[in-house]
Nucleic acid binder design. Structure first.
Lengths: 124, 124
DNA sequence: CTGTTATGAAACTAAAAGGTTTCATATCGA
DNA sequence: TCGATATGAAACCTTTTAGTTTCATAACAG
């Protein structure tokens, strides 16, 4: 119930440039497939498929209005991406990367190794 | 020169679960292909290909040490992802989403439309 | 009712992705 | 020098992906 069976995950969904553009477009405003596909050099059916993939990942929601289906952005699943990304932030935070990684990995023992191009390959 | 020709971009690179695991593994420590592939249920060659894709996206760096090649994480390209993601943060920040989007899009005119299920389909 | 519009499903295609196995090359160790 | 180790390149295979075209269905407008 929490995870709607998801054939496609967020990482996969945003891997395609077209789909990223679609997301951006739908951020502005809800719109039907025909309008969306007007922004792309491909058939409406192709865009429709992209929309299904996005919907699968939970990134867009659909709403029927008469004979048309309106699509809109749901950014919530991007939080997973954000969390994933957060893990790596420490690696680029600043010039202290090397030191920080070293300290965290080594728990403070041998504090001064690894600050030079010392290379763990000298391990024996 | 700035952009190293990149056949693969970051979005594509992290789309594959195996590659995400490789990244995580390499965050801990630099290591050669043989060691890396020991963590995966596939051939060394397959892992090697994943590494080339990651390297293509700039996410890993290689260093030759004798007969082996050591790979290590370079998280820098993930900043592009972070920037991309930042755009969407406003959509999940809090319950004021609807209001915020409306205000930003409309530049303050007609402040009270759109707060109800008003639906732009009533456009004529 | 009739024709037009909006859309998804189906069938098909070409190219890319993710693997495998085999082979060539370079470095190590003795 | 010789055999073992580490690795990338090549050729090949299978499944997915991104598109296309065609078709059926549902809702609208007269």
């Amino acid at each position: 119930m929490a995870v709607p069976s998801q054939k496609h995950d967020v990482f996969q969904a945003i891997a395609d440039p077209t789909r990223r553009q679609v997301l951006k477009l739908l951020g502005e405003q809800e719109m039907p497939v025909t309008v969306i596909s007007g922004h792309f050099p491909m058939s409406r059916t192709a865009v429709s498929k992209h929309l299904r993939i996005l919907a699968d990942a939970g990134l867009v929601k659909e709403r029927k209005v008469g004979r048309e289906t309106r699509y809109r952005l749901d950014a919530e699943p991007l939080m997973e991406l954000k969390r994933w990304l957060a893990y790596y932030e420490r690696y680029w935070e600043n010039k202290l990367n090397v030191l920080k990684r070293f300290v965290e990995a080594d728990d403070g023992k041998s504090l001064f190794a690894g600050l030079e191009p010392v290379d763990p390959e000298t391990k024996e």
